[in-house]
């Protein structure tokens, strides 16, 4: 396992508890999906791992996070990047006033190697994202959302990570572009051996590419399993994929209550 979370609690501002006993594991070279709706605690989980939490007045109060066998919950973000864990944040977060290429180069900030190695890696990133090469000299603030997402992932890649935390890479992208981004992520996983933990609301696409998934609700892991197992789970199908039974749902017959989720029993 490259990443192991053992029943962590996260508290914001000393009073607001957001995560309650979350445990999850990412195997080496694996793709794992972290699923759930808005406010379920997906982003918080990722921020707890990358320790960006401390800059939002959040804190891991219980449990432990092991990255590559080392406890990291009280580490710093740059320390984690150096160890090989990069967090690609939700909403792309490119540096708008830097060009695409400069954005990629900031990703190599922690690297100690010479500029020729960095230049090789830049070419490697351009190899995976040919679109980035075409707009390498444009300001990142002006390129399309898809390119920005690629830029954010490419920037993460420049740190030569062993584990990438992707937070909602599908957000506000056209379905075709979402496919494209996930295809590249899968390729990175296969060819570069980067382990991947994706937080997604788009459960359909996440389960298509991941091999294992965890479902978060209200800060708890309520369900986990192999991806195809989850895809066929009745609760997942009804509550997240909107498919109920054999027939399409008619909204004429929708009652004001819904079937109780089994995991709440």
């Amino acid at each position: 396992m490259i990443l192991e979370l053992d029943s962590i609690d996260v508290v914001y501002d000393h009073v607001i508890q957001v995560l309650k006993g979350v445990s999850l594991q990412v195997p080496r070279r694996g793709i794992v999906a972290l699923l759930g709706g808005n406010g379920a605690g997906k982003s918080t989980t990722l921020k707890a791992i990358s320790t960006l939490l401390q800059f939002e007045r959040g804190e891991v109060t219980k449990g432990s996070i092991l990255f590559d066998g080392v406890r990291v919950e009280h580490s710093t973000p740059d320390e984690l990047v150096r160890r090989g864990c990069v967090h690609v944040m939700e909403g792309r977060r490119c540096f708008e006033h830097l060009t695409v290429e400069e954005n990629l180069l900031t990703g190599a900030f922690t690297r100690k190697e010479g500029s020729s190695v960095i230049a090789d890696d830049l070419e490697l990133v351009y190899g995976y994202f040919p679109d980035l090469k075409l707009s390498r000299h444009s300001l990142a603030g002006y390129v399309s959302g898809g390119i920005q997402q690629m830029c954010a992932i490419g920037r993460g890649l420049m740190a030569r990570p062993r584990l990438m935390l992707l937070d909602e890479p599908s957000i506000s992208l056209a379905p075709r572009v979402v496919e494209e981004v996930f295809e590249i992520v899968q390729k990175l996983n296969h060819e570069q051996g980067v382990s991947i933990l994706i937080a997604e609301q788009n459960i359909n696409i996440a389960l298509k590419y991941a091999s294992y998934g965890y479902v978060l609700e209200n800060g708890r892991v309520v369900l986990d399993g192999e991806a195809n197992e989850l895809r066929n789970n009745e609760d997942i199908r009804e509550f997240y994929l909107g498919i109920a039974g054999e027939h399409r749902k008619s909204f004429h017959n929708v009652k004001s209550y819904r079937r109780r989720k089994r995991w709440l029993a």
Binding site: D78, V81, R93, F95, F109
Partner: peptide, 13 residues
């Protein structure tokens, strides 16, 4: 200057 949280996330101290 652009986004200090994103800067943190790529390992800038």
């Amino acid at each position: 200057a652009d986004d200090h949280q994103a800067a943190l996330s790529v390992g800038i101290t």
